[in-house]
Amino acid sequence: MAIDTHAPRLDETGRHRRLRLRRRGSARWSGRPGVRARWAKNAGWYIFLTALSLLVLYPIWMTIVRAISTPLPYIDEGQPLWWVRPQWDIFWRAFTLGDMGRAFFISAIMTTVIVVAQVLTSVLAAYAFAFLEFPLKRLMFVVVIATLMLPIEVTLIANVKTIREVAWLGVDSIQSLSAPFLATAFGIFLIRQGFMGVPKDLRDAATLDGFGHMGFLWRVAVPVARPIIASFIVVSFLSAWNQYTWPRAVTETSSWNTVQIALREVSTTRVDQLNIGFAAAIVAALPILAILIIFQRHLIRGLTAGAVKG
């Protein structure tokens, strides 16, 4: 705990506030309550914030209601805000019925492969850029930056051709789902930033203690940069789990669908079975929702990297 400032504070509306105690790290995110029991004065804000919350949550709520309700009676009742003839086992059924369980399995493996590979390749490359001198270093850095301008949507056609031509890749495989994402410029930049925070003293001490590059990397640099690497892992997981365009392009049989691609089936399902698709969408978002809640701090640091100065 550290005292944030010694001056009387003013909030957005200009009223004086007492000193605020700020916990390091999480304090940026959580506006801590200043003066207790200003409920009456703040009622207006609470009403406004609640209204905004309802607006943001409304689409999710309607999907949950829709998933739980029996489809045809729900439509007959005029699509109310509450469920009609609820089927509480729908979320479990969405998971076990048909290809959804398998899709989760494939998504999980694909995501794991991508995240692990991205961390390894990014840590190594970031180490080279942060600590080593080698010829054409600047050019190599420009090469890494240039990849940011070549998203998968641009290179799609040629990459799918490669997948079809190379025997050990091939459509409908974990290799093809993950191959273009095994390295990422974002990870290299982010982790390089983390490595640059390693004090020079620590490097010299490590060299003196006889650490080689591998020893210094895994025993000193990675532990020091751990918070940033954690942020990267969270964002990497998020984007791997959620990706759509590429898996859609390299999947031909539905048994190789990832979760996101399996969700597409709502557009072709019969009306009386739509609740399963809606439940699947909710279940598909759960792993990410869990991460949002558990690793909130890391997620926010990862997402805001580059966006906010200082």
Partner: peptide, 25 residues
């Protein structure tokens, strides 16, 4: 949501929540 109110963190989490949904979701 950028103000010091009791329980503001709940609102902040709600407002951030759509980050959990993919394009497909």
């Amino acid at each position: 949501a950028h103000r010091r109110l009791k329980g503001i963190k709940i609102f902040q989490t709600i407002f951030a929540s759509t980050v959990a949904s993919s394009v497909a979701v």
